[in-house]
Amino acid sequence: MKKIFFSLILLMATMQLFAQDNGVEMADSLRSSGKIYVVVMCIVIILVGLLAYLFSIDKRLKKIEKENHIGK
């Protein structure tokens, strides 16, 4: 298990080596300036918030199911 995990990690590390550059305009400068991380952070916060909300709905639903004696 550990071996597979490490080889996966190493595989991921080598992926970057295949990056090609054929002169097409990409957001490289935006990423190197670090500001893309702001956007990533916002998206992650929104996703985490929504998913936490889903979990809380799930929890409330479980409580109601218990009150209504609905089996699993």
Binding site: M15, Q16, G23, I36, I43, V44, V48
Partner: peptide
């Protein structure tokens, strides 16, 4: 949840092919 959050991070930051 973990996969979706991973997608948002890796999907925006990892490299992609440069295509016109």
């Amino acid at each position: 949840s973990v996969l979706v959050i991973y997608t948002a991070i890796a999907g925006l930051l990892l490299g992609v092919p440069h295509l016109a």
